[in-house]
Design a protein around this nucleic acid. Structure first.
Length: 421
RNA sequence: UUGAUCACGAUACAUCAUC
């Protein structure tokens, strides 16, 4: 059993989760040893880290069947797995189940639930869970409040977000870098960079040190206001704080220059990062490619796709959508289709944005039937059409003069809970 | 006097419409 424990742990930690899973299955079949709760939890942890929720669920069922008693850790991990995918009914069901089994959910368990509602933007539910925690005398912690702040920031209610900060201080909870980081990012996203810096000052006054993420957040805030020079100065200032700019810092600046249409400056940053020993990643390349696409320089964009392959970098869904969109904008349909097929070949499943991009391409050509085919495929493969999908299709029908269909979709969109914009 | 390098939160790139 000890050996088995080790085996599972090693597999799970090295990302060989499939192997760990198989070993687990195998041991269960022979029935000679019963895995300890420790190895089960390591396995669950490994599986969930790699997004293998279904396998994790299977392990859970096996545990129940073999009478291995789950503990708080086991339940919380799986609950968190469901939450991350927005499968809240299942998450809640498991909370009830664990209570039924005499295992009490703790702060972390409830935080995992709150995290799920936060991802779905369901603020009401978030505060309901908080209320429930208070009733059950489970003290919320810094993370609980941070997630509330995140929720308010996402809907641009910065005042409410800041009042949560006050409330947590009133409860003698000490906000940490992440808490401040959320608020700083929140202010950056609404373009209130001065307030973002004000929060940063607060943080430093509170005795917390600056870190790379906070700097990057501010850099991004400046960049999105097209204040790239100040952003670049901030990268230089980082050294004085004893911080080392990373891929995110440089890529953010590079992207900002590309957005300005100044690809040369983008390349300068590209070189700068290499000089400083920071390797570009997919995002860095994607920003450059996107820059070329905006300038309709598709040959150049493609050159970088090739270059990625040369340096052994794998393009991702973003790379493909970027290029597809570039070709759509200049009306080169055949290239779009080629990329779509390459995407299907290379990648696992197109994501929501890949589908939206493709649908947009077809709509712009007035090929509404084909657009609908993709829509069907999208739903079949588990991607949920969002307000952008609908707006795209509605616009497509309007373009071909089919106002009737446009209204029909509009109604469907509202029925599904998306607000028309 | 002990309570788990197994659980929860922050930063960069792509898609629609309006202008």
């Amino acid at each position: 059993p000890a050996v088995f424990d080790m085996l599972i742990k090693v597999y799970a930690e090295d990302g060989m989760v499939k192997e760990a899973f198989d070993a687990f299955e195998c041991v269960l079949q022979t029935g000679f040893i019963t895995p300890t709760i420790h190895s089960c939890n390591s396995l669950l942890n490994g599986l969930l880290k790699y997004g293998q929720l279904e396998m994790a669920w299977h392990v859970y069922e096996q545990m129940v069947e073999k009478g291995i008693k789950c503990n708080v850790f086991s339940y919380t991990m799986i609950i968190s797995g469901f939450s991350k995918e927005g499968r809240m009914q299942e998450a809640i069901k498991l909370v009830l189940e664990m209570e039924r089994m005499g295992c009490n959910p703790n702060v972390v368990t409830y935080n995992a639930i709150i995290d799920g509602y936060c991802r779905r933007g369901e603020l009401e539910e978030m505060s309901n869970v908080l209320k429930m925690m208070l009733e059950k005398k489970i003290g919320p912690n810094v993370i609980t409040f941070s997630m509330l702040i995140k929720g308010y920031c996402r809907e641009s209610s910065l005042e409410r977000a800041e009042s949560v900060l006050m409330e947590m201080k009133a409860r003698n909870l000490v906000p940490d870098c992440v808490t401040y980081g959320l608020l700083i990012d929140g202010y950056c996203k609404v373009g209130e960079i001065e307030s973002a810096f004000r929060i940063k000052e607060d943080m430093v006054k509170g005795g917390l040190k600056m870190n790379v993420v906070i700097c990057n957040t501010l850099i991004n805030g400046l960049c999105k206001l097209a204040r790239v020079e100040e952003a670049e100065q901030l990268v230089l200032d980082m050294r004085d704080w004893g911080l080392v700019p990373d891929k995110v810092s440089y890529s953010t600046i590079l992207d900002a220059y590309c957005r300005k249409g100044d690809i040369l400056e983008g390349f300068r940053v590209f070189d700068l990062m290499e000089q400083n020993g920071v390797k570009p990643n997919v995002v860095t390349y994607n920003s450059l490619i996107s820059g070329f696409c905006r300038l309709e320089k598709m040959e150049e964009a493609n050159k970088f796709l090739k270059k990625m392959a040369e340096v052994g970098m794998t393009p991702n869904e973003v790379t493909y959508s970027t290029l597809m969109d570039g070709y759509i904008k200049i009306g080169k349909t055949d290239e779009v289709l080629k990329l779509w097929n390459a995407l299907l070949r290379d990648s696992f499943v197109p994501n929501q944005i890949s589908y939206n991009t493709m649908i947009n391409g077809l709509c712009k050509l007035g090929k509404m039937d084909e657009a609908n085919e993709i829509l069907l495929e999208m739903v079949e493969r588990g991607s949920i059409p969002d307000s952008i999908t609908y707006t795209t299709l509605i616009d497509g029908y309007c373009r071909i003069g089919n106002i009737e269909q446009a209204f029909k979709l509009q109604n469907e969109m509202v029925r599904k809970g998306f607000f028309p914009r």
